[in-house]
Design a protein around this nucleic acid. Structure first.
Lengths: 160, 160
DNA sequence: ATGTTATTGTTGGCTGGCCAAGTTTTTCGG
DNA sequence: CCGAAAAACTTGGCCAGCCAACAATAACAT
């Protein structure tokens, strides 16, 4: 490993430092701001960021086994468990054991949960509008493509 | 500007649901993947994602009062407090009270912290390389510009 | 000088998210 | 048929991050 670090020129100013990881930094900040904005919007309907994605997914896919949520949402099994426990406590989601395979838990959105879907979509629309304010349709398409590429780049190192 | 979105050309399929919040979704997923990737890299040097940004900032700015960190990093005061408590416990950061104003806490990176800066930058470089694999310099510039715009769009709703 | 307001930081509680280690059930191999 | 391996979740612990409520100090007004 680099036992050196001594190779560093004593120059106190390392203009590099401002450029290294510039993109990663920017992604980090955008992500935090985006999440915070989502949080503010979702708070109006009593949700935390992340929960709305779970509910939206369940709204689209009907009954789903938990392991599929893990794969499709790309989050840790333990995270899914805890999120569902909280959503269940709020009556937005139901879980029951699959009779054919008693390991799996089948998850479904409740009526109360469905009632929120409209407002969730509304929040999404507003959030995208805030995020992409001043973007032309062209810009948005470009952005979507870029995000897809980024996701593709980051995905492989996901499944390790 | 198109106030609508109804001006969608060639719209025949009305599965709105897949399009609503598409960008927000993508940002969400990219952000999670990016953070996870950062976590894997940082783990090698014993840090959690977020801490490296704090340390990098302190490395660049020397002594800083906590309230400035709140503003410059754009995170909650309580988050700063807790992060610094943990970093202090690890000996990477020092805090002392400002004698001229006993409310403020002045923060500085320690020698042990500085020793990590090189490896942190290395992680940043690697992460950006993973994230932007296959991106031309042009692509990266575009991406940086877009991220800056996104950040600008999301910032105002931050300071509420 | 003295009470009121603003600034600064802390604590507690809640979330999403990860990892590591466990439990239960199913499946597979001998 | 039975024991080992795999699959599907759960629990506990730790992190960042937010909000709300608090304590301490400074600045300001009267």
């Amino acid at each position: 490993m680099d036992t050196d670090g001594a190779a560093e020129p004593g120059a106190g100013i390392c203009d590099d430092r401002d450029r290294v990881g510039e993109i990663g930094h920017a992604i980090f900040r955008v992500a935090r701001a985006h999440r915070a904005a989502a949080g503010r919007l979702l708070r109006e309907i009593g949700l935390y960021p992340g929960q709305e994605i779970m509910l939206g997914h369940l709204g689209d896919h009907g009954q789903t086994r938990q392991s599929r949520l893990v794969v499709e949402l790309g989050i840790d099994p333990s995270t899914v468990t805890k999120m569902l426990q909280r959503l269940e406590r709020q009556g937005l989601v139901e879980r029951r054991a699959d009779p054919t395979d008693r390991r799996v838990a089948v998850v479904a959105i409740t009526e109360d949960g469905k009632d929120l879907l409209g407002r969730i979509e509304d929040s999404w629309r507003r959030l995208d509008e805030i995020t992409c304010a001043g973007f032309t349709d062209d810009d948005r398409d470009r952005l979507k493509r870029i995000l897809t590429r980024l996701e593709g780049n980051l995905a492989p190192c996901e499944e390790n």
